[in-house]
Structure formats: structure tokens, C-alpha cells
């Protein structure tokens, strides 16, 4: 295994870097250390941010000395082998037809796929939440079929609706909040990945899988009404 790199961003954030690429095994190591650090509950650790290939530790250096933090991390990393963590597979309903799959026809044409084939490929695999970023609940999903590797738009499109399901750059994403984007909007889920007043506010943990299930526009409306009433309509089971 490649040794860890410790990178400082100022005196309050230490980046533990496992590698420089997007890779499931690197991401597993990130999450294993993240879980071990959470378990250790070190005074002075404020929060951690797991990303594709690194774990950022936000800390208060007047409480926790950097050298001690590094020692703890090295010890935890030695013990924290890449073991089975409790991870889940979610099934998210997704409507790919209009008015929801706004860019589906255009991106299918670019990929030389029929819209039906694109949907088949997107629903055919469980996609892994590698990290969140960009905006609250914006989940980067890895494991996309290679046929769906569309490049990003040259210029951002108009803001997408809430809970858009998108592809670009070899990844998929779920984007809860409307934003301009360089991604292609291929569908929309009636489920809320992020609902600030719900407990839990976020449904899907980093490391969980999401499998999309195609629904028609009528079913979308029915499920959206149930979600609006406070129900969670995505199904969940233990992974593997």
C-alpha cells in the first residue's frame, strides 16, 4: 500500500491523503480511518471530511497538538484494516422521462445510445456514494457503466430542479438543491436525499450504494406527494 501523506491546510486542517486517484479501495481506506477516528473521539477533533482519496481532519490546535494527531492517526490506521463496515444499498425511484429527464435525449445522442439503453445502463448497476461536496447532499456516485462516460458541458446549463439525477465525467450524481450545472440531467428522484428538518437530514452515507429504479411520471407524482408528507420512499437493505 502507498504510505499516507499528511498535508497541512493552515493550522486547523490536516489532510490524510491515501492516493491521488478515484478508486474504491482508496475510498474504503478513507472510510475505515474515518470510522476509527470517530470511534477514538479525540478531544480537539472538530469534524472530518471524507473525500474520494483523502480524509480531512478539522481540529483545534490549541487543544490537540498536530504531532499527537498524526501519531493517533498512524496508530489508528495500523489497526483500522479495510474491514467490512455496515454499508447499505438503497433503491431510489427515478423518473427518466420528460418533464424530468431534461437532457436525456441530448446526452444519449452524444453517447450514441438510445434513451432506453441509457436508462438500462444507469439502472443496471449499484452506484457507490464516494463523497459529498459542492452543495448539501450533492452525492458523487462512482461505478457508472463506461458507456455513460459523457464529458461535462462546455458551459453550465440553467439551474436544474431539486433532486436531479445527473451524469458527467464518468460519474453520476444526485443533486438535491437547484443549481446551474455542467452535468447532464437525465432524471429526477421523488426522494429527498437531503431534507434539513427531517431526522436524519441526510439518508445515504458515504460508502453506501444507490441503485436507481425507473418509474413513470405518474408514479413520480404519487411518490413525491408521499415524500412531501414526510415519508421515505427509497428502500434500503444491508449491502452484500
Amino acid at each position: 500500500m502507498v504510505p499516507l501523506r499528511f498535508l497541512d491546510s493552515g493550522e486547523t486542517m490536516l489532510v490524510v491523503e491515501f492516493g491521488s486517484t478515484i478508486d474504491v479501495m482508496l475510498n474504503e481506506r478513507v472510510l475505515a480511518l474515518d470510522a476509527a477516528l470517530a470511534g477514538a473521539a479525540l478531544p480537539g477533533v472538530i469534524e472530518t471530511t471524507p473525500t474520494f482519496r483523502s480524509l480531512a481532519v478539522h481540529y483545534e490546535p490549541l487543544v490537540l497538538d498536530r504531532a499527537r494527531l498524526v501519531d493517533h492517526i498512524l496508530e489508528l490506521e495500523r489497526l483500522a484494516e479495510v474491514t467490512e463496515r455496515p454499508a447499505r444499498t438503497w433503491t431510489f425511484p427515478c423518473c427518466y422521462t420528460l418533464p424530468h429527464g431534461e437532457d436525456l435525449a441530448e446526452v444519449a445522442a452524444r453517447l450514441a445510445l438510445t434513451p432506453e439503453r441509457l436508462v438500462e445502463l444507469h439502472t443496471g448497476r449499484a452506484l457507490r456514494v464516494h463523497m459529498y461536496g459542492f452543495s448539501p447532499g450533492f452525492a458523487y456516485l462512482g461505478g457508472l457503466a463506461p458507456e455513460l462516460a459523457a464529458s461535462r458541458r462546455a458551459h453550465p446549463r440553467a439551474p436544474h430542479p431539486s433532486d436531479a439525477v445527473m451524469i458527467a465525467g464518468g460519474m453520476s450524481a444526485v443533486a438535491p438543491l437547484p443549481m446551474p450545472t455542467g452535468w447532464w440531467v437525465i432524471g429526477r428522484t421523488p426522494e429527498k436525499v437531503f431534507a434539513p428538518v427531517r431526522d436524519p437530514a441526510f439518508l445515504v452515507a458515504v460508502g453506501d450504494d444507490i441503485r436507481f429504479e425507473a418509474i413513470d411520471a405518474g408514479t413520480f407524482e404519487a411518490l413525491a406527494a408521499r415524500v412531501a408528507a414526510g415519508e421515505v420512499v427509497a428502500r434500503v437493505e444491508a449491502k452484500r
Binding site: 491546510s9 493552515g10 486547523t12 486542517m13 489532510v15 491523503e17 491521488s20 486517484t21 478515484i22 471530511t49 473525500t51 474520494f52 482519496r53 483523502s54 480531512a56 478539522h58 463523497m131 459529498y132 461536496g133 459542492f134 452543495s135 458523487y140
Partner: peptide, 27 residues
């Protein structure tokens, strides 16, 4: 490859002109 951003981090995109990332930075 995207990674975490601290308050005060100075990133340099393709333009070569730095941005100091402040309180409302993306995480």
C-alpha cells in the same frame, strides 16, 4: 481530484489567478 477545503485556503484555478476561500466556500 476534489478534496476538502479549509477556511482561508488559496486555490489557483486554470486562470492562474488565486481565490482565497472564505466562510461560504464549498466544503
Amino acid at each position: 481530484v476534489s478534496d476538502a477545503v479549509a477556511h482561508g485556503a488559496i486555490q489557483v484555478p486554470g486562470s492562474g489567478l488565486p481565490f482565497v476561500l472564505m466562510a461560504d466556500r464549498q466544503p
